[in-house]
């Protein structure tokens, strides 16, 4: 459907993008207002922009520590999940395995599991292993989210790689593992990378496990850390706005660089070619 875009269409686009971005715009404008102007004042722009809120946001709470925690946990999760999932997805799409439908069904079901249904046994397990308030304490439960998700997405990408290459590799005497490593993996690398980004974002955003397992402030991740900026009595909106801007910047960069890949990954799992 290659309709031409008229002027009305562009006006619609601008309005649409403005509405979607409005919360970010407003939060950013708030973050550079002086404390006194945040309350009882709905002016869009301040005459005296200041970075006080940013200084407070990182001094009153260990925001950079939260970001480091999130980064380490998400990276470890991504590496482990992709490692296991790429092997499994390859086998599921290529090798003659019985009960493929059933296995894929289990994997899909697992990716939709409500986290609340598994949190208490996972909590007991992590506590028994002495892993509360540590990186591994979060990486292990995050496998529950990321492994099924990555198998599911990777399977779609692997499907698109032509069979012929594999057959010729087989004829040349390559073992299935060699075929995987030398032929499939290089061809599948873009798909693997895309899946990696999605898994990374999913792990970065996770809240429930992070809230229950890593309760010490030092070990909190970004989402939990941000939600604890508000205390019982006061809500320092200036600090929160600044903190929100700081933690959103890496995501904006990630999205700007990889937007095509992200869209490809998101849609591959749900749309038939």
């Amino acid at each position: 459907m290659n309709k031409r875009a008229g002027i009305g269409f562009y006006i619609f686009l601008v309005v649409f993008v403005f509405f979607v971005m409005f919360p970010f715009i407003w939060v950013f404008l708030t973050s550079i207002k002086p404390q006194g102007e945040i309350f009882n004042n709905f002016n869009w722009f301040t005459a005296n922009p200041t970075l006080d809120s940013y200084v407070n946001a990182v001094e009153r709470r260990p925001l950079f520590r939260y970001m480091l925690n999130s980064f380490v946990v998400s990276t470890l999760t991504t590496i482990i999940a992709i490692g296991f999932a790429s092997i499994a997805a390859y086998a599921l799409t290529r090798l003659p395995i019985k009960f493929k439908g059933l296995i894929l069904g289990i994997i899909l079901a697992a990716s939709m599991f409500p986290q609340i249904a598994i949190i208490s046994p996972i909590y007991n397990f992590v506590s028994d292993m002495g892993l509360r308030n540590s990186y591994m304490g979060l990486v292990i439960p995050y496998i529950t989210i990321s492994l099924p998700l990555s198998i599911w997405i990777l399977a779609t990408f692997f499907k698109k790689i032509p069979w012929e290459l594999e057959e010729s590799a087989k004829l040349d005497g390559a073992t299935p593992f060699q075929t995987f490593r030398k032929i499939i993996f290089p061809l599948a690398a873009p798909g693997v990378f895309t899946t990696g980004i999605l898994v990374f974002i999913a792990a970065w955003n996770e809240y429930l496990f992070a809230l229950t397992i890593n309760t010490a402030d030092k070990w909190r991740t970004v989402p939990v850390g941000i939600s604890f900026y508000q205390s019982q009595f006061t809500i320092p909106w200036g600090d929160i706005s600044a903190a929100t801007v700081i933690v959103t910047i890496p995501i904006v960069i990630l999205v700007l660089i990889f937007q095509r890949r992200i869209v490809a990954g998101l849609t591959s799992g749900s749309v038939k070619e």
Partner: peptide, 15 residues
């Protein structure tokens, strides 16, 4: 447009 659509999806729900 694609980027502005992806950013709300990509930020943590808690944020």
């Amino acid at each position: 447009v694609r980027a502005s659509v992806l950013i709300p999806w990509a930020i943590p729900t808690a944020v």
